[in-house]
Design a protein around this nucleic acid. Structure first.
Lengths: 329, 329
DNA sequence: CTGTTAGCGCCTTCAC
DNA sequence: GTGAAGGCGCTAACAG
């Protein structure tokens, strides 16, 4: 930790002015080739690197994009992150990630850390706690400082660019698919009824069963879902489950497997889960795939576009999901 | 994006000096309660927030720790990250994460982004490509600017704080465990023979079979491992596999399952994989658990300690892993 | 109690 | 072709 050399020190060393060094290092035409070389050489020798903080303060541009995620355990968010990265990597922007662990407080802190100078723009998927609390002032305020883009977990009342998934339609279609196969008692299992996306999916389910069957809602913690699924199966009240998230999907799967109704066609199960685990389950799990990577790419591309011409109105882009039919349906 | 208000603007607005505003906002005792309130009130009104970049440039302290990870798909690294966060969250440091996707180039870029002013310290697990390339100059140089701590994927030749897992012993013990159960033809499957940790694990394996059996090394891509496992099983050349990473574990699992040797005791399998998937496999997978979260916590705690008194010599801490015996062994 | 000044590291007119 | 000066937003002596 001997601290990098500065332009000032370099100027003293070479007995030239600070501005000469600066210009030489920026390859200005105002400096003679001779001194330019002399300066650049010693700069290299001393391993000079411009202090980004100073450059940033001076230029007012961070050249950095902040990505705020509630979790990275979440396979969808992890894929979305990769999508974002794959796009940003081709530009001269840097990416900085902050994880909120679904906490409101951490989200506020993250946003403030990033916004006040660190980054030019923020891509965020709002945390669960924030969506429960319904307090979005930190998100509103941050728009003063940086360009804001939300994806997946989106706040309606905030006017900014957004990229979402066709939650409603995806579930609606999945239910229709089950119905077309003769399923008449389709339950919905969810541990994410606090999330905007969870609510949208539930609406899609309700719309699809409208006039066909009564709704069977299984909501709560992973354990609660397990218990309720168990009693519903034992009472033979259901012949299919749509699970809205990985926890609910695996909980339903475990019970279905234990009760031996998954392989013999007594119970269909469509869930949300990562490809790897879905394929390795026995029987393998039919899932709704939200194309996280594409969502991330779309978000990053939209952001870059807006960063270039910030004038335009906010946009809302939707990425369609698709059903990956495997053995449980 | 109307740009946050600055102290200067505030001072003009209130017709006091810049430093008075600064002091008032920092709750200095030098300022009279009356003006202090007046200033703080209008600051709040205009939603003033200090520009962190300027504070940072001034103080020379970023109050931020950078975490550089090769991947977040990797369950161990994801858990380690959570461990790091859980410790840092209790301090007033912020965390900033950068993902290298196992790329040397991205690692260099990440380090440079972070080091030149952004952060006070860097916690890194080196990327695969870097370990193949064996070019560590960027890591050596960065030590001029920030405190460096490596974990898991560690570079021997660099003198810094390190937190590692007992790779050698863990495998050694796992092999001994298999041998004690009568296994005589234990193969090693790995897609990570490029990594330092992979090499260490292989050494542990070789030491454990020394004088007992010939080594059976299955190395390469996930597909290559699949093929080789298949032919070894068909030739009845092996009765156990130790797989060094999730890909090799799942590849071995798939083949073992397909050939129906996993449930009837013909083939034992010990792997590395996340708890969730390991438990959901049928049969469930015996794994070596490296306690990623504890590794992360240990790393963060060590770093904080060093950040307080930077004088002391680098330390090397080891976190022991444990065997989670499930159905495949 | 309030204000002036200097400076963090860099870049950028504007003089010379 | 080179250098001096000012300023990005903020803090911290030091004066008053």
């Amino acid at each position: 930790m001997k601290k990098s050399i500065t332009i000032k020190e370099l100027s003293k060393l070479l007995d030239v002015s600070i501005s000469t060094v600066s210009k030489a290092l920026n390859d200005s035409h105002e400096i003679s080739p001779a001194t330019k070389k002399r300066i650049q050489d010693t700069a290299k020798l001393y391993n000079y690197k411009p202090n980004r903080i100073a450059v940033h303060l001076k230029s007012g541009k961070a050249n950095t994009i902040g990505v705020v995620l509630p979790s990275i355990k979440n396979f969808f968010l992890a894929r979305a992150l990769r999508g974002i990265e794959s796009v940003i990597a081709k530009t001269d922007y840097n990416i900085i990630i902050s994880i909120t662990n679904e906490s409101y407080e951490k989200e506020v802190k993250s946003i403030q850390t990033l916004a006040n100078g660190f980054v030019d723009a923020i891509i965020i998927a709002v945390s669960e706690e924030t969506q429960i609390k319904q307090d979005f002032t930190h998100l509103k305020n941050v728009q003063d400082d940086v360009h804001l883009l939300m994806f997946d977990r989106v706040v309606q009342s905030i006017d900014c660019d957004k990229v979402v998934v066709d939650e409603y339609e995806a579930i609606f279609n999945a239910v229709k698919e089950l119905q077309s196969k003769g399923r008449k008692n389709i339950a919905l299992a969810s541990t994410i009824n606090n999330l905007s996306v969870g609510k949208l999916r539930t609406k899609g389910y309700l719309a699809a069963i409208e006039g066909i069957q009564e709704s069977i809602l299984i909501e709560g913690s992973e354990g609660a879902v397990e218990n309720e699924v168990l009693s519903l199966i034992e009472a033979q009240k259901i012949d299919a489950i749509i699970a809205l998230d990985e926890e609910a999907s695996l909980a339903s799967f475990r019970i279905g497997k234990k009760k031996e109704v998954l392989s013999n066609g007594k119970l269909s199960l469509i869930g949300y889960a990562g490809t790897k685990i879905s394929e390795h389950l026995t029987p393998s799990l039919t899932t709704i795939n939200q194309h996280g990577k594409r969502v991330g790419r779309t978000a990053a591309e939209l952001l870059l576009k807006k960063l270039n011409k910030p004038l335009k109105d906010p946009e809302l882009l939707t990425v369609n999901s698709s059903l990956y039919v495997r053995e449980t349906s």
